[in-house]
Design a protein around this nucleic acid. Structure first.
Lengths: 137, 137
DNA sequence: TACAAATATGTAATGAGTACAATTTTATAA
DNA sequence: TTATAAAATTGTACTCATTACATATTTGTA
């Protein structure tokens, strides 16, 4: 079984050609794609693949916790198949989004002054600025 | 001079009735409003105030660094007149957005494994979950 | 007062995302 | 295998936040 299919099983999601293809794309591409990017790429292989299916599928994945939904981009939602702890960096020059690895438990250890009573289920750290390439131009 | 007008001056923004009113709203409301919320509230006082003006003005403020633009909400942009360091919490129950104070320099002290060459100009920490009120229901 | 530059406004257009009805695929049972 | 129900996919129409743009108003200045 492919890694993508395994991952779906792991999260209790029934596999289908479309679902496996979408998960596969997310696992093999670290570019934090938009729906359009996924559709453009996959519709070459799966000619009838509709954007609605991609939207539905990504929502299904995200609600199951199998992928991350990123709102770092102002215009459009981005998706990430890597659910391990890390931050995201958006370059204001080229627009690309980079993974920023954190040392172990770095986000867990942040000290808040006032979260008593709040139940935190999700933490996202977004950074912006210039990537190394854009910085040297 | 009002606090709002002072703030505009501080960031090199020429004041106008509309600009002062919008900044005033942001300084007096900690609800991280949307454009619609600002428009709904202010158009009672300034009858001709258009949404386009609010969009333009908020963009102007944000680019000058006088306010923050938040993408914590999936559907719509929220704005924050408090530019001091703090995180944001969105309650999945009521949808409200809360300020979460951080201890001094907490965000600065996060250790990244791999930011060499990146120029970071902005950091946003978004939390999600349930607020105290929604948790008890 | 006259004129130019800066602001503000209203309408039309864009485009991401969703609702929904129709179609296709999959699973199940006789 | 066949019939049938449930699940998944698809395409179209729609919503709604945001932007583009042309026009109108206000402000600053000579």
């Amino acid at each position: 079984m492919s890694k993508a299919a395994e991952r779906l099983k792991e999260y209790g999601i029934k596999p289908s050609v479309q679902r496996v293809a979408i998960m596969e794309y997310l696992l093999n591409h670290k570019n934090h794609p938009t729906v359009d990017m996924i559709h453009h790429e996959l519709s070459e292989r799966i000619e009838t693949l509709s954007k609605t299916t991609i939207y539905n599928t990504l929502k299904l994945f995200a609600e199951a916790g199998a992928i991350l939904t990123l709102n770092i981009d102002e215009n459009t939602t981005r998706y990430d198949g890597d659910t391990s702890q890390h931050a995201h960096f958006k370059c204001c020059g080229c627009g690309n989004i980079f993974d920023i690895r954190l040392k172990n438990e770095e986000l867990e250890s942040i000290n808040f002054e006032s979260t008593s009573g709040f139940e935190i289920t999700e933490k996202e750290l977004y950074l912006k600025g210039l990537c190394p390439e854009c910085k040297n131009q």
